[in-house]
Design a binder for these strands. Structure first.
Lengths: 234, 234
DNA sequence: TGCATTTTATTTGTCGACAAGATTTCGACA
DNA sequence: TGTCGAAATCTTGTCGACAAATAAAATGCA
């Protein structure tokens, strides 16, 4: 937060400003550098990125469209809070998107998709071996996003990416508790899923994705029940 | 297009400008007043709505987020085209959202939801009886959006509303062919679905929604095969 | 001291203008 | 007459400034 993002000296290309601001803020929201509820000040961001408020505002409008920030008209704007009371709706959507993207990937994937997928799976396995929970969260999301890309359905992909972003925020909140015996199980489940996709076995891919997703949901829920006495005032 | 939307004389409230522009353009895109591929000119819109380009641009950014317009950086922006080559991805998503929102509505609806749902069903029945295809398209979307509201899942609701909007554009393209014997069948199917929701029979609601959705998809596809020799250059 | 009201200050929404990028028009030359 | 390149035009992206709406502070009054 204290360091400057200003591109001192070098001229930016026209139109790259909003994209950069959007991506930087998006990353900071997802990795909780900007925790839920953080106030978003336009002039402060304008100073930080060394540009006028106009491109800043455009980036904020896009982030609001993604549901990552909430805007109170004429009042303040802040990073979206996490609605713990309705987490089940999130889990419902997440499980279904896990299933449908995996199933469709089994049907529509192309050979080159598997290269990308396997690369993320390897990265996930490394993170699991190293016990790096933050890397596991990021690579797990990237892996499933890659599978969703192979499913070739832009509608499901859009919703799924949004859910994966929200899931990353959720897991970061409690990543301390995320290093049990389960990582190796997740690696194995990923292997099975990828094998089913490669074999173009849609039903098996669906079945495995469902088990995997429900496994993850249970894991997240157990984290919450274990830590529910801690700070829920987010 | 020729008439003016300018609120001559009356002062607009601060912040209402973007909302109004967004909603007006959204409606015009959905009902094909602005057909796919139409160029969007910011200064022209600024003149039409009697405001500066800034709020116009904000509305356009939001519309782009909804996928209703496409923006070529530093170049033109236009109403999104309809991708006929990948319609199956749209149908896949539409059927699944029909199913899941109906099923969840059976589980989570409240008594007041049924009032709204039945009101739209009555409007749909009237439109079907009158043979008003345009009204049928609009009220059918409103009915299913109301069911999705009762499902109380914001993630599914967001995707579903987007799909319903796209479906309305699709049907308007060919609404001339939409007045066969099927309307009464749709009315009956709606009745069955609503009954299943009221009975909180989730499995039956899912089954009926699936049949209903696939019925509609087949109907749309048959329209396309009948008219495929006509203008596909949209 | 406590509450209501006015005043100040902060932040957002809007505006008009300018500049960069891209398209089109025009003209030179083969 | 056709093609390439330069000038003009048009559209978008960005800027600094102003105004409205809200929040905070200060003042008056009981």
């Amino acid at each position: 937060m204290t360091e400057s993002d200003a591109k001192t000296g070098s001229e930016r290309r026209r139109g790259s400003g909003v994209k950069m601001v959007y991506e930087v803020l998006r990353d900071e929201i997802i990795d909780l550098t900007l925790p839920p509820g953080s106030p978003i000040d336009e002039v402060q961001l304008a100073e930080r990125f060394q540009m006028s408020r106009t491109p800043i505002r455009e980036a904020l409008v896009r982030l609001a469209g993604d549901g990552l920030i909430d805007t109170l008209p004429n009042r303040s704007t802040m990073v979206s809070t996490i609605d713990f009371l309705n987490l089940h709706t999130f889990f419902d959507a997440l499980v279904l998107m896990y299933r449908v993207t995996t199933k469709l990937a089994a049907q529509y994937h192309r050979p080159e998709d598997l290269v990308t997928i396997r690369a993320y799976q390897a990265a996930f396995a490394d993170a699991a071996k190293a016990g790096d929970a933050l890397a596991m969260i990021a690579t797990n999301a990237a892996l499933h996003a890659a599978i969703a890309e192979a499913a070739r359905n832009p509608y499901f992909l859009g919703l799924f990416n949004r859910l994966l972003d929200e899931g990353r925020r959720l897991l970061r909140l409690y990543y301390q508790s995320y290093g049990d015996r389960l990582p190796q199980q997740f690696v194995d489940e990923h292997e099975e899923i990828i094998a089913a996709i490669e074999a173009r076995n849609a039903d098996e891919a669906d079945r495995l994705a469902r088990l995997h997703a429900e496994q993850i949901v249970v894991q997240i829920q157990s984290i919450f029940t274990r830590t529910e006495r801690l700070s829920m005032d987010v």
